[in-house]
Design a protein around this nucleic acid. Structure first.
Lengths: 209, 209
DNA sequence: CACGACGTCACCCGGACGGGCGAACGGCGC
DNA sequence: GCGCCGTTCGCCCGTCCGGGTGACGTCGTG
């Protein structure tokens, strides 16, 4: 029983993907989830053979959801769906444990091929994106793109809503000093040095919405 | 011959929408376009009865495309598709000439109903969004969403790239004090009080990328 | 058990930021 | 000509922010 689990917060995208994936030979069941949290909750029971996950989602983003899923289920196969041909996002997707990534603009054939290959167990990359990746300078050995912790993500979310450290602290029942500690740490991880940069990067990577 | 034209840069979304819309009684032909430019080019020849347009698209955004389309074809019916339940975006959609707006998370039934009503000639709003709009305080009679000037947009862009006021000033050949003046003004216009909020709003409104 | 990662809190300090205010110039429209 | 707007620049001041450092507790892993 070959099952594919689709995760996206937009019903339209879920249905679009479903109609695409249902045509793939070998796929017998297609399930859908509307959030990263839902995937984490359902995966242990349903054990889909492949997860198609959108990067950009409210709450747990696709990246973080994938990281956690792969951490607890190392054999999980995740293909990340990215809206834009953004090297940052793709690199992030791979470092977070995704087996592959697809542009939301893929053709029916490309998606079929990708799903089929992934079900075969092969890691894969979308051809046009592979080219984009290969074009990049091989110099910088890639900062490991450290994953944010739960708290750090909460603080970043607060920042993206324009809240001050004090406000974030009150909402999370923390002291302002603690929020500042989390802020410092997430700045380090993201490689930025102020909240504006952090917010911008958060949006670009789909950590916040 | 009732025709609906779907416009979105992601094939998956286009196909998802197509599968939704094709089920609507009365719709005989469903066309798709991948950009706002394509819609403007094809509309005069194909004269679709309804256009479903995504707000977030590279190049000509959905808002600008709608504005131009309605300017040249005042009888054009456009339903805007928004990803997030964002009052700002919806208000913008309406002021740009859209007859209605839908969340990308609509159910099949909601979309069918919306399309059917729009084809009937009625202006419409998505129920869950209407509620969100009605919940807002009726006190503030809507700040006209003042447009940013060229300079202000440049400063905001710099902010979204994590630059300090001094850096922005050096790049634009301005004094830091001048940058701060533009910053203060764009904060006022956007209704925020620090750069992090401004960056977040910039991303949400698509002012920066 | 010891170690590391995470979370919580605290202190100090310098600098960047944000707000209020004033001022001057050029262009545009009436 | 007058007024409005956008742009440019300056000053003051309070404050929040960001960096450094230290500390303590709790987990889970090795």
């Amino acid at each position: 029983m070959t099952t594919v689990l689709i995760c996206d917060d937009h019903r339209i995208v879920r249905e679009g993907l479903r109609s695409f994936v249902q045509g793939v030979p070998g796929v017998e069941r297609v399930e859908t989830a509307a959030s990263g949290e839902e995937v984490l909750a359902r995966y242990p029971h349903e054990r889909p053979d492949l997860v198609l996950m959108d990067v950009r989602m409210p709450g747990l983003g696709g990246l973080e959801a994938t990281r956690r899923l792969v951490a607890s289920h190392p054999d999980a196969k995740v293909i990340m769906l990215t809206a834009a041909d953004d090297r940052e996002q793709i690199a992030a997707a791979v470092t977070h444990g995704a087996r592959g990534y697809l542009l939301k603009d893929v053709s029916h054939e490309e998606l079929c091929a990708a799903v089929a290959h992934a079900l075969d167990g092969a890691d894969l990359v979308e051809p046009s994106l592979r080219r984009a990746l290969l074009q990049r300078e091989p110099s910088r050995s890639a900062p490991p793109a450290a994953a944010l912790t739960e708290r750090e993500l909460q603080v970043l979310t607060g920042m993206s809503q324009g809240k001050s450290n004090g406000q974030i602290g009150r909402e999370l029942y923390l002291s302002e000093d603690t929020v500042k500690t989390h802020a410092r740490r997430l700045f380090r991880k993201l490689g930025v040095n102020d909240r504006a940069q952090a917010v911008a990067l958060g949006f670009r990577r789909g950590l916040v919405t």
